[in-house]
Design a protein around this nucleic acid. Sequence first.
DNA 1: AAGGGTGCCG
Length: 885
Amino acid sequence: MALSAITPQFHLHQDLQNLNSHFPGIHSPNKTFTLSFKPQKPYLISSTLNPPQNSLNTTATTSIAPQNPTNSRLLQLCLSGNLEHALKHLASMQEAKIPVEEDCFVALIRLCENKRGYSEGEYVWKAVLSSLVSLLSVRLGNALLSMFVRFGDVGNAWSVFGRMGERDLFSWNVLVGGYAKAGFFDEALCLYHRILWAGIRPDVYTFPSVLRSCAGAMNLVRGREVHAHVVRFYFDMDVDVVNALITMYVKCADVVSARMLFDKMPTRDRISWNAMISGYFENDECLEGLELFFRMRELSIDPDLMTMTSVISACELLGDERLGRQLHSYVVRTACGGNISVYNSLIQMYLSLGHWKEAESAFSGMECRDVVSWTTMISGFVDNLLPEKALEIYKTMEITGTMPDEVTIASVLSACASLGQLDMGMKLHELAERTGHILYVVVANSLIDMYSKCKRIEKALEIFHQMPDKDVISWTSVINGLRINNRCFEALIFFRKMKLKSKPNSVTLISALSACARVGALMCGKEIHAHALKAGVGFDGFLPNAILDLYVRCGRMRTALNQFNLNEKDVGAWNILLTGYAQQGKEALVMELFKRMVESEINPDDVTFIALLCACSRSGMVTEGLEYFQRMKVKYHITPNLKHYACVVDLLGCAGKLNEAHEFIERMPMKPDPPIWGALLNACRIHQQVLLGEFAAQQIFKEDAESIGYYILLCNLYADSGKWDEVAEVRRTMKEKGLIVDPGCSWVEVKGKVHAFLSGENFHPQMQEINVVLEGFYEKMKTSDFNGQESSSMDGVETSKADIFCGHSERQAIAYSLINSPPGMPIWVTKNLYMCQSCHSTVKFISKRVRREISVRDTEQFHHFKDGLCSCGDEGYCERNDKKA
DNA sequence: AAGGGTGCCG
């Protein structure tokens, strides 16, 4: 039966009459008693009792010592704390149908409560129920109420409450407190008003629970009403009640009211100070909080553990490392020194300010550590981009025998994710399954992220589908996982599904936008852009730059520039634009834009120089590129990373300076990684330097024998040099290793819908028409002199050459949009692999025949085809861009 | 006799 069934639906004026008749001094000005009653959560009860109108002054049944020896024995067992025997004794008494006296039940219930024996308590409650003739006495009922509330079982507490013949204020207070603690704030407030209607005068124990409910519901209006009640009942001088009021105001974000109360207090205890100080911190008014903390010190009131933990975490918010160190030394000198929580917040403070060495020494100096200490270290190392150290700490934690909780597991998983440590991640998965921690949403979310980042997207999807409750982060993780596993199309399908169930946040939108940008889904991206603006998050965090990135990657530079002008022009925005122009092959614009960036006093960062180096590399501007590389180090004090070195190798190598590139690698201050050797291998392919290329490949396979891209490069190197036996050898190795070439995939957006074409698959409903159209073009190409220029490279060996890794899916995409879009409309295709020379020629031909602009964006750059020409320049294309597959 | 008020980890 629902709570509302026994909650009388009072009419407002009737309530007021009631109230006025009991407390003539109290009337109902303003909004004080305008209460709304929401439908209640259902609780099973088997009583239809209404609370008595006035249950004050009811006396508990006087307790009488047990009359018979069996009862005496039970009482004795209870008093000696032997729950197990007591329960056995109870069972035997029930079997023998010996009535159990109230005293025994009360003692037994208290014992259950003290021993935290929930199931035992429930058993006793059933025993009480079965022996119950009429209604529960106040004494027995209160004991049961107290026990169930302690166990957080408000359902049973309510059931007990309903079976009580009489109740005193204690009964009401316990129940209100139980609802408040269990998070049923509306129910607690409803009960509070029933206390008033019943004509009972609340006491100092009532208000803290009621105020906690107002705070929990973030209901300032109700909180103010209760404040008015406090004043009218003359409890506004009681320190505990006023402390609760301060806390209520603080949690409802009304710090000013809290402070007014605090200032008016005739006496304050430490809790008043703590509530007010931490209240300031919670409301981001750290300076005021610190000021109050110093006032407290001036008044020689010693801060306690709670004061210290909250002030220390305020240093974290303020970024005040100096004060943090002072507090640290204060903590060491005082009694707080041995406290785990205080130390935990110190460690957290150091870690969040990036001083992980201090955190480490504070941590190692701790006499004892709890799971929070360990977890703080682990997640702190993850945040400080030191996942290896996070795993080290976790391994030590395992040795010391501390059991990880759900937060620990989530943090360690995030370390595994950033390290790509699948083995460790799978061990944690097993652990989470075994301990039941997988039921926590955070744990499952971290697992999705870990599996995605370790390239096990199927596992990630499996976990996602098994989750009973998915939150925004679950959806975002799976969308992002699909995106980073090159399954952007599916990512967008999930995004659509998500919108029906859960509200995407700005992180979700960024991930979805990035997926759109990847597959060139402009309309879909625009929709998300509009959604973001409508939801009022369009300018949150990285979202403006994600939108900019969408337009740039879809090749809509004009729209991109508009967006750029709207955005706050941070380094990120400039970098996106620079990278975009570099991909469009507009080197001169890149240089110009960089000049303007510097003029507008934006400091370039490492990414900026990657864009610049790429632009130089693409246009063969070796001198300029090397100059930028120097400038980055000398003028901007940016230490080049592996990606910069790879860019320089590419720059030198593609320009034919292979030996210089090799020497450059040898001179590197760090160990070259596979992508750097890959750049050299690619250069060797362009300039047909088989020996050096083979050397580079050897270096790569020593470290990375699983990435398919390098095998394809090597294959192409051999193919371009006519070494067909070696090609076959490499392909055999690939097959042995089970490496599968990504199927070519092209996306085209027609009428706002993205269509994906997978090479080798023919399941598109219009596939027949598409093939007819393509056949037509091939026929015409044969008869025209258009294909003359590349006939030399297309004869005989064509199928064995680089083209085998293309998939040619872009042809289908183009044919599809020719059929389905109006004449003259430009066509935009996005591709997951590099466009092969044969496709390049075909598309050039098509663009001339149909007089349409066709843009194909492959993994490397944009090809804008118009009137039989491509923006990349045909020579340039053969040289540089028919290289990597 | 019991019940209430303050802090730390993703």
